[in-house]
Amino acid sequence: MLEQLQREFSAYLRRQDEQVFELLAPTSVSAQQAMQIYRNNYVASLSEALQASYPTVLQLVGEESFDSIARAYLAKFGHNSGDLNRFGEHFAEFTASLPELRSLDYLCDVARFDWLMEQVSAAPHSDTPFDVAALSSVSEAQFIDLVFNLRPQLALFASAHPIVTIHQMVSEQQVEAIELNTSEYAALIKQPDFSVRVLPLSASEHRFLQHCQRQRPLAELDEECLEQLQALLGMALQQQLLSGFNAAAKA
C-alpha cells in the first residue's frame, strides 16, 4: 500500500500522472496545487544543481534555454542517487543528443570541461615531492620500462574545439569571435586552496600525459613523443604533474 502510494507520488513528480490525487485529503489548496508545490521543488532543486555544475554552459545558452535543457535531462534520466553531486554526470552527452543544439556542436565539450573542473576541485590532493634522486639512479637500460604516475588532483582534457579559450572568455566576460575548429588540450590541476589551475598543453604533451595516465611504459610512447621525451618529462616535472614512477610489470 505504502509502496504503491510512493510509486504514484513519484509518477506525478516525474510525469504529472494524477492517480495520486485520489489518496489526498482536502486542505486549503487542491490536490493538484499541493502536488505542484512538491513538483516545483523537485524540478527547481535539480535544475539548480545542474546550473552549479555547468556555469559556462549556462552563460553560453542563457537561463531560459538552460532551464529547458535541464527539464528535458531530468525527464530522461531522473535522479538515481541520493548524492546530488552525481546528478549531472550524463549532461554533456545529453546536450550532444539534442537536435536543437546540433548547431552548437562544441557545447558538449564545454559541458565536459565544466564537469571536469568540478570533479577536479573535489579530487584527492597529494603534494608528496617527486623523488628526482631516485629517477637519476635508474640505469639507461631500465629507463625505457618506467611508468610515470600522474598526481591524483590532475585531469586531462582534449577537444577539437577551443574550449579552454571559450571557458576563459566566458569566465572573464570578454567574449569575442574566435575560430571554432581549433583543437585545444589542457591539464586541470587542483590547487591547495581548492581552485583549479588550467594548464594549456600541446598535442604531444597531452599524448604523453595520457600515456602516463594509462599506466603504459615509456617504451610504448609514439615516435614523436619519444623524440621529445626529455622536454616532455621536464615539463611534467617542472609543472609538478607527476607523483612518482615504477618499473612496468613484466608480461
Binding site: R7, S10, S45, H79, S81
Partner: peptide
C-alpha cells in the same frame, strides 16, 4: 522509490 531520488 524504484531507484529514483527526489531530493526533497
Amino acid at each position: 522509490v524504484d531507484g529514483q531520488h527526489f531530493n526533497d
